[in-house]
Design a protein around this nucleic acid. Structure first.
Length: 505
DNA sequence: CGGATTTGACCAGCGC
DNA sequence: GCGCTGGTCAAATCCG
């Protein structure tokens, strides 16, 4: 829609120019010599011709965009219909199965988590395929990838759509998000095992933060569940590994450096940053270069923002908070070992570029966005896989919306086709041609990570936080294991929140 | 001059 | 208890 809106001003401008050119001169030039007037008129005519040609091009472009838009809309609608149909089917099957409580599911029955995931998955075939993968040693092989590829765009679309829905809620019924990247997520119970190696701190960030926030006490014996949860939520961290030449990653948020330390095992100092968007925001991040590869920047986020964020910053914030919620949920239900994705992690651990590592003391999600996922399934995603526009008109609190904002803001995936009826950034996309690398997002898992890494190198520090966070989001959300985990975590998280709210009442 | 960064000191957790 | 280490504080310094 914005596409249409975007163009007219240009046209109007040119009309103004034309009017000025054609209208004023005759009066002005009356007093000039005829030769001068002729040459001037010729020049003006040339300008007019040029302008007309440009206008024609603009019109053509406008038409193209309109066509594209209509195609996107129709695609979106068909996807939505598909999604609703699948949800219906899933609801029915879920009712038939009479599933147990979510908490029990998370703690005891991995397969139940799968069913939970299925509830949020629009594509039954894709869901079944993913479930198969999960049940079958949670391994992701080329063969499994091919089966997954059968779902292709619908598959991806559905996963995200579901995760989001589950997470956020009842609103945005038509919202959909597609993940373009298929990145392997690793899960283990030992943080020392992840690929980050020496670069990533193996020791947990101690809860010194609680010293300032809770007054130095640390809670003590009588800490109730709420306090415990807060502490755990605070502990939960999301670590992002990215190739970046700049001192820090531009994630769209405002940070103030408050300390720097040389940590053991890494010659590069670790910098400590605090969010300064709001005075009392508890969010902190640590930035450190990888000891093995100085070009890799490791950024670890901790905490949840206590203030509204711009879309770009919300993307990262939502990613981290979602991951934190997942980890918190896992640790509260029992241990991460009991979570189904523990097995998945063991299976996938061998080579994924993106890892999720959890330690009993300090669960951490590590997103390794520095290496191409060579062993990943090759998904053929639709170019506008990030049909996340549906969430955008929700609010920044909506996890998917934030995640999707990257695509929308940078015209990456969506540049070719976008469900702009729901995308508030449609105009930006139209006005901003997508970088070539971004188109690769839609090509498949392997290229996706490579492309994202390349794009991030450009974006980081250069003002493309959304691209970074979006890549992260894709890495997280495109993995079925993570999605089921996330769904379980969110369910658990929201359940607790709801319970707390009920208690407050 | 105000805000951001630097940097040494301090504190707490943890292992021995 | 002691030392090591990570995390934070706060004064000094820098910078726009």
């Amino acid at each position: 829609m914005d596409v249409v809106v975007e163009s007219p001003p240009v046209r109007d401008e040119k009309k103004v120019d034309t009017a000025m050119i054609g209208g004023a001169p005759p009066i002005v030039f009356e007093s000039f010599a005829s030769t001068q007037r002729d040459s001037t008129i010729i020049k003006k005519e040339e300008k007019i011709e040029l302008t007309k040609a440009e206008m024609g091009e603009v019109r053509e472009e406008n038409e193209r965009l309109k066509t594209m838009l209509s195609r996107i809309v129709s695609d979106y609608q068909s996807l939505q219909m598909h999604f609703l149909g699948v949800v219906k089917v899933k609801d029915q099957s879920a009712a038939d199965e009479n599933p147990p409580a979510a908490a029990e599911l998370a703690a005891d029955e991995p397969d139940d988590l799968v069913s939970l995931r299925l509830c949020t998955r629009p594509n039954a075939a894709a869901g079944a395929a993913a479930a198969k993968r999960r049940k079958g040693n949670h391994e992701r092989t080329s063969s499994s990838s091919s089966s997954a590829a059968g779902g292709e765009e619908d598959d991806v679309d559905g996963r995200l759509s579901l995760g989001l829905r589950c997470a956020i809620s009842d609103e945005d019924a038509g919202g959909e998000v597609k993940a373009a990247a298929a990145t392997v997520m690793n899960l283990s119970s030992d943080s020392s095992g992840h690929a980050a190696g020496a670069g990533e701190a193996t020791q947990p960030i101690t809860n010194k933060a609680s010293r300032s926030s809770s007054g130095g006490g640390g809670g003590g014996e009588g800490a109730d569940d709420e306090v415990m949860q807060q502490q755990q939520a605070k502990k939960a961290r999301v670590s992002v590994r990215v190739k970046c030449d700049t001192p820090t990653m531009n994630d769209g948020c405002q940070w103030r450096k408050y300390g720097q330390k040389i940590s053991k095992g890494n010659p590069c100092p670790r910098a400590y940053y605090r969010c300064t968007v709001a005075p009392n925001c508890p969010v902190r991040k640590q930035v450190q270069r990888c000891a093995d590869d100085m070009s890799i920047l490791i950024t670890t986020y901790e905490g949840t923002h206590s203030h509204p964020l711009p879309p770009a910053a919300a993307a990262m914030a939502s990613t981290t908070s979602a991951a934190a919620a997942m980890l918190t949920s896992g640790s509260t239900t029992s241990t991460m070992h009991h979570m189904p994705f523990g097995g998945a992690g063991a299976g996938i651990f061998a080579g994924g570029p993106t890892t999720i590592s959890t330690a009993t003391s300090c669960p951490t999600v590590t997103l390794d966005l520095t290496a191409p996922p060579h062993s990943l399934p090759h998904h053929h995603h639709h170019p506008y896989a990030a049909a996340a526009g549906g969430f955008d008109h929700g609010s920044s609190r909506a996890l998917p919306a934030a995640w999707s904002s990257g695509y929308l803001a940078y015209g990456g995936i969506g540049a070719a086709a976008r469900p702009s009826p729901f995308g508030q950034f449609g105009g930006m996309v139209a006005a901003r041609p997508a970088p070539p690398e971004m188109h690769l997002f839609g090509a498949g898992g392997g290229q996706t990570a490579t492309a994202s890494a390349a794009y991030m190198q450009r974006g980081i520090g250069g003002g493309a936080p959304a691209a970074v966070t979006d890549t992260i989001a894709k890495a997280i959300t495109s993995d079925p294991s993570f999605q089921s985990v996330l769904a379980a975590a969110i369910t658990s998280y929201m359940g607790r929140a709801g319970g707390a709210a009920a208690q407050n009442k």
